[in-house]
Simulated scan of single mutants.
Amino acid sequence: MTTFDSRPVDVHRHDGKIAIVTGAASGIGRATAARLAREGASVFGCNVRSDTRQAAEQFFAEQSLDVTMLQADITAQADIDALVSAAGDRIDILANVAGAMDQYRPLGEVDDDTWLRVVDVNLTGVMRMSRAVLPLMLNAGGGAIVTVASRAALGAGPAGVAYATTKHGVLGMIKSIAWFYGPQNIRSNAVLPGGVHSEMHTKSDRSGWAFERAEIAKATMPPKAEADEIATAISWMASDEASNVNGAVLSVDGGWSSA
């Protein structure tokens, strides 16, 4: 057992496993790809932007981690097919991490382009990625899908209408997968982060009054987590240690959801 950022790393937890991590170039995605690789998995990560992908490739190389980065857009079926094909004929773990924000726009201000983009990434992209790996997991006799939802999946305050709606939808999806495919040894679970130190939350053209309203919901939010703290939960839910955990929703928000 070694440590990474002061959190335990079981270097044999995922020995021999093949994992796909979406949104792997930054934030929770990069931390998840790094943790799974440190814990023995061969990881195939993807990201839509070439600049952040190249920076992530350098990071993984400097850390001598078995992470192969590919440029892929999870809203494009052809890119998903290419990503799954690159991973080979077996996929043990899928971590759905890629996500898009909605600038805290309430219903009266959300435009169709923002709505469709957030739905395409946060909900349809998760569906397509999960659907793409199912045949390989079924053929292998099992697998684990872990999807990053959000504290916003439990309420409306922490985000705008598109983000909150998609994260609520994710919970229905992961439970449906768990119900139908649990007997085939395929587990599907979700982690719900609260505030996280991540690039995702620093590039937002926010709706002014709606963001101020959201701040009320955030009044009880604990200090932001580090991305690896969320990756730790993802790794455990994807591991054999969580073999009886299926259809679960795990809040990893420092207690914010209990307020």
Rank of each mutant, 00 (worst) to 15 (best):
Q184C: 10
A55I: 15
G141H: 09
F180S: 13
E226A: 12
R128Q: 06
S207G: 08
N96D: 03
I80H: 06
R105P: 04
W179P: 00
A82V: 08
G255F: 03
E199Y: 01
Q58S: 12
S150R: 00
D112V: 15
S204C: 08
K175G: 00
Q63L: 08
S257R: 13
M69C: 07
I230N: 08
N122L: 00
N189I: 09
A41R: 15
A132R: 12
A87P: 10
H201W: 15
L250N: 07
A100I: 00
G125C: 00
L36T: 01
D240P: 06
A217H: 08
R151N: 08
S130Q: 04
D240M: 04
M1Y: 11
A225N: 11
A233R: 07
I174T: 14
N246D: 07
G29R: 14
L250A: 09
S243A: 10
E215V: 00
S6K: 13
V245K: 01
A159I: 03
L138R: 15
D112Y: 01
R131E: 06
W115Y: 05
V97W: 01
I93V: 14
G142H: 11
H197R: 13
P223D: 13
T220E: 05
R151G: 05
P8E: 10
L116V: 10
I28R: 05
G169T: 02
K175F: 07
I145W: 04
V148I: 12
E57V: 09
D120E: 11
A31W: 11
D79T: 07
I174N: 11
V146Q: 02
T75R: 10
S251P: 07
G195A: 15
G194H: 12
V110D: 04
S239T: 02
L192A: 02
N122C: 00
S239L: 03
V249G: 03
P135F: 02
M221R: 11
T147K: 02
V252C: 06
T32F: 04
N47R: 05
C46H: 03
R53V: 10
G23H: 04
N246W: 05
W256V: 00
S42N: 11
G143T: 05
I74W: 00
A178Q: 11
L136K: 13
D205L: 08
S257H: 15
M1H: 12
G195T: 13
Q103R: 12
T220F: 11
G172T: 08
H14L: 09
E199C: 02
G155A: 10
G208E: 14
T3L: 09
L83Y: 10
I230D: 07
T124G: 00
A61C: 08
G247C: 05
